[in-house]
Nucleic acid binder design. Structure first.
Lengths: 297, 297
DNA sequence: TACCTGATATACAAAAATAGATGAACAGGA
DNA sequence: TCCTGTTCATCTATTTTTGTATATCAGGTA
């Protein structure tokens, strides 16, 4: 076995081949050629002493060893991207790329106006939006700033609590005209409801507060809150969404305003390392300010 | 500004120059030549559009921009190293390099026999020991497995609680012969004591349990528990150390066995990604078993 | 079956990166 | 003051890497 460290570029090539599934596709992605990519993989395999891919005329099939290495390579790529972001953000003033992670609903329904205003104030700022709920994003540097619904535990993260975004039960007037307005919470069992596909921490929290949910059999299940919101807007049935978003559509009616109210705790989070970089500082402050205004403080 | 991503090797070169302080030294470190290193830095600077170093005949002085990029580059290096570790550990069976992080005392006084036994069982296993108390190590992949005194909060970490390592007040017989054995806890105020230099979470925990400590003015202060242990062994005065370590030296006497006993909670921690890799699994298990035996279960 | 499109592997030429040698600038010590 | 050891910058030859062109193979489709 060789003693020298392989070129870090080989790792990038390796990851791209994993992602693309073939030497040729990776070559297109990286702006290199297929023989070059092939040589990189050959060199890496020679160095670590194991085969990473089984070559076939249809492409490259990753071996188990390659799969084990994949998370490391992905993290390497995330770090390299983060480094490049801070590098291009250098030079004083708010400039460069800031990468924000938020849930789908927040990222699509809530943030855009705030980000537009931010962009107006800082023309040199490039905003990337990553829609994801994974809390790990920040630590793995896949994002600079995150809007999260659970409070992060890590010391290395700077967290600003925004408060609770009010959630409520809603349905479109079209649905209610057809199926009637439920009178008591128990009536919900007779209605078409919109619920979650998989069990998540958030769902468990709802269940705890409103045990009735346990009994409901949603006719429409989706993990994506955005899809649920779309289903409500389409008059599919009764579901949970942000009160503020529902209010935007005059045809959406809030149900059981007194019986069902769930505040969705919200936090803006940033990695400590980034607190001095102007672009992150400015974005962080803008998000905090915008979200505070959004929940009506 | 260029659009293409720089070679990841440039990041490695950049970090090495930061660490070594000169192009020439970095070249020696990396097994390359000084002109090559210089070209790498030039290319990186051209790409990001900022000067990273001020060249001088004494070496390269990093600019502020370079300092901002440093943590990212360091993490990149840690990830690359982690990737290479798992890569060399491939192939079934316990082989490759495992990197363990532990506090100084644990790493020097407690772990070595366990690690020796582990190494006997698995001759192909290479063990790296990193002495540090930083909890972040695992997430940043600077270590595969850690022995920690605080329970980690992260979901991504696999944690095994070992139990409390008993701590106690100790002094060397030589000291006691000269200065007398304190009769009551209050007498400690008249003695030479060994304490911490800086305030840490651990120190605060001790203070809470034994308020008397608050009043003590240690004549010997060190953050390093190892240095404190050495001071006790040298007969400097009265200090806190692991009961088990003190027992090894027949001339060290435990004081106030009933009045002062502090269990030091201990955990073995591993990143979830590594739980299937044989070398980490075997090391994790060996550490858990060894430490359980150490605290006498 | 013939043909087209995708894939990898190989041979050779072009391009790029590297090493080596040399010069100039600076710091420290005799 | 001069010598020595360090640094970085520059120029050129060489090595390495990459790209181009081509061969080969597998799987659809007319």
């Amino acid at each position: 076995m060789n003693r020298t460290e392989p070129s870090w570029d080989f790792y990038r090539t390796f990851l791209t081949v994993l992602q693309e599934g073939s030497l040729s596709a990776a070559a297109r992605e990286l702006g290199l050629t297929q023989p070059t990519i092939g040589r990189h993989i050959d060199a890496l395999e020679a160095r670590i002493g194991f085969q990473l891919f089984i070559r076939s005329p249809q492409g490259l099939i990753p071996t188990e060893a390659a799969a084990d290495l994949r998370p490391h390579a992905e993290q390497l790529a995330a770090n390299a991207a983060a480094l490049l972001r801070t590098a291009t953000g250098q030079g004083g003033g708010v400039r460069g790329t800031v990468r924000i992670s938020a849930s789908e609903v927040i990222g699509i329904e809530v943030l855009p106006p705030m980000l537009a205003a931010l962009s107006d104030r800082h023309p040199d700022l490039v905003i990337e939006l990553s829609l994801s709920d994974a809390v790990e994003d920040l630590l793995r540097q896949e994002a600079d700033i995150a809007v999260r619904m659970v409070e992060p535990q890590q010391d290395a993260l700077i967290t600003r609590r925004i408060g609770g975004i009010p959630l409520g039960l809603h349905a479109h007037r079209r649905y209610l005209d057809k199926h009637g307005i439920p009178d008591k919470l128990e009536d919900l069992l007779q209605h078409r409801t919109i619920g979650f596909d998989r069990e998540s921490a958030f769902v468990r929290a709802i269940r705890k507060r409103v045990p009735l949910i346990e009994l409901m059999r949603p006719s429409f299940r989706a993990d994506s809150n955005l899809a649920q919101l779309a289903a409500i807007r389409a008059g599919f049935g009764i579901g949970v969404c942000q009160v503020e978003l529902a209010r935007r559509d005059p045809d959406i009616v809030r149900l059981f305003e007194n019986e069902f109210a769930l505040p969705l705790e919200t936090f803006v989070v940033m990695h400590e390392n980034l607190k001095t970089t102007p672009r992150c500082r400015a974005t962080f402050d803008a998000l905090v300010e915008g979200l505070l205004a959004y929940i009506g403080r």
